[in-house]
Every structure is written in structure tokens, then in C-alpha cells.
């Protein structure tokens, strides 16, 4: 964890209610699956946002405007400084044995998988990605995943782009490990359908984001764990569903 004052270099709309913010400055280390906690002017609690990409200098966040915090974020202009706690949580396991990883993202669960895909491709893996959205106008980062060399399948709930239905209707065969991030019903459905080993990233309302307040705890096979500290990424076997 590192507290950093970062400068916004980009804050642009990517799709319906979805924005990309790029931040420059000393953000420390940020690994795939980790998140940052952003302090926003006028709000008391920080807002946790998953890391979409990090190249050592520029931190990329993709977020959806779902409430006051993210709406406030969307209104910030490039040049503004933000107080950000960086490198939080326990991310995806990049060294787990697999040759053909399958990445499954739903909505704003897609962003952390982009950074993961980049690292897995770098490690010589043949990455497949299934990206699920409600409608065509919510789709983002399809091309970015393709540019990395991923085999991308799109799914939309209303059928306006790609496969009609949920990500569970669009899963390719032949993959040997999965990595998922998205809404809880999607994660549960995936665990019901997939038999390969996998890791899932959970979301929870957080107080601090670094393990102090116990606000975001989840019961696991190994006792109570903090989504912000031992998570947000958990092995599928740990989750009790």
C-alpha cells in the first residue's frame, strides 16, 4: 500500500455511464486484481476502484457512475490532483499452472481483467476472454483485449451485440483455468457451470480498504476474510456457495 498524490491526465467517457481515468505520479506497485482507494473532495469515505492497467507510471481506472462518489469522479478535469491509496488487496495468481486461461468479466468487472490479460499474454498464455454487458451501448474494451491477442467473445443480455444472453451462455471450451470479475449472481453462475480451477474477484462496500475496519468481511472455507485485504480475489474453493 502506498498513499500517493496523483495527477489526472485523462478522464473520458468510454460507454454509457462508463469512464476511463488515467493518473500519473508515484503510484508504487499495482498488480492485476488489486485496487486503489480514491479520496474525493466533499466525501468522507474513499471509493475503491479496480486497477485496469498500470505500466509503472500511468495508472488506468475504468469506473461506472453508480452513485455520488463515481459521479463526482466523472466530473473531475485533467490536471486535478487526487489522494489515492495504491496497491491494495490481494490480486490474481499469475503463476497458477495453466496454458489456456479464460477471463470472464461482467460490466465494470471487465477492467481488472484487462491488466491480467496483458500479463498472462506476456507470460506466453493463450488467453480467451468473455466480456458480458447488458446492451451494445455499454460495451467497452473489446478492441483493447483483441489487440493484446486474446480470443474475445462478447455477450449482451439483450442480444444487441455478440451472443444473446449472459457470459455463462458464451463460454468457450478447452480452457484450463478461469479468472472472473463481475456481479455476484454472475460469479455464482460461473462456479456452477465451470469445473476448471479458478479465481474470482469480489466487491463489497468498504470503510478503509486496507484491513482496519472489518467492514467488508466475507465468510470463507477458512474463516472470515476481508475482501479488501485477503481479497478481493479468492480461489473458488474458498467461497461458500
Amino acid at each position: 500500500m502506498k498513499e500517493a498524490s496523483l495527477t489526472i491526465t485523462e478522464n473520458s467517457r468510454l460507454a454509457a455511464s462508463v469512464y476511463r481515468m488515467r493518473l500519473a505520479g508515484g503510484a508504487g506497485d499495482n498488480l492485476p486484481g488489486q485496487f486503489v482507494n480514491v479520496r474525493l473532495p466533499g466525501l468522507f469515505l474513499r471509493r475503491p476502484i479496480s486497477v485496469c492497467d498500470f505500466d509503472g507510471e500511468t495508472l488506468t481506472l475504468i469506473y461506472k457512475t453508480v452513485g455520488r462518489g463515481t459521479e463526482l469522479m466523472a466530473g473531475l478535469e485533467p490536471g486535478a490532483e487526487l489522494d489515492v491509496l495504491c496497491g491494495l488487496g490481494h490480486g490474481y495468481d499469475l503463476d497458477a499452472p495453466c496454458a489456456k486461461p479464460l477471463l470472464i468479466g461482467g460490466g465494470v468487472g471487465v477492467p481488472p481483467l484487462y491488466y491480467l490479460a496483458k500479463e498472462l499474454v506476456k507470460n506466453g498464455k493463450a488467453v480467451s476472454a468473455v466480456l458480458g454487458f447488458n446492451t451494445a451501448d455499454e460495451v467497452f474494451y473489446e478492441e483493447e483485449f483483441r489487440s493484446l491477442g486474446c480470443a474475445v467473445t462478447l455477450a449482451t443480455a439483450d442480444g444487441s451485440r455478440g451472443v444473446r444472453g449472459f457470459v455463462t451462455d458464451a463460454l468457450p471450451n478447452g480452457c484450463d483455468r478461469f479468472y472472473a470479475c463481475g456481479p455476484l449472481p454472475m460469479l455464482k453462475a460461473l462456479c456452477g457451470k465451470l469445473t476448471i480451477p479458478g479465481q474470482l474477484s469480489l466487491e463489497e462496500r468498504m470503510g478503509c480498504g486496507f484491513g482496519a475496519c472489518m467492514g467488508c468481511s466475507v465468510e470463507t472455507a477458512h474463516g472470515a476474510k476481508r475482501v479488501c485485504r485477503e481479497g478481493p480475489v479468492f480461489d473458488r474453493e474458498e467461497l461458500l456457495w
Binding site: L43, F44, L45, R68, R205, C213, M214, S217, A224
Partner: peptide, 23 residues
């Protein structure tokens, strides 16, 4: 104790609510 079910944190003006429940 595990404490209360989540969500157990809420934003307020100049403050917050917690309902951790002595985990």
C-alpha cells in the same frame, strides 16, 4: 464472532455508519 451481514458500511455527510458487529 463474524459480526453482521454486509453491507455494513455507509457514507454520510462528514462521517460514516458502520454495523460491523464486533467481528
Amino acid at each position: 464472532r463474524f459480526g453482521n451481514p454486509t453491507p455494513r458500511i455507509a457514507e454520510c455527510t462528514a462521517g460514516m455508519i458502520n454495523a460491523v458487529g464486533l467481528q
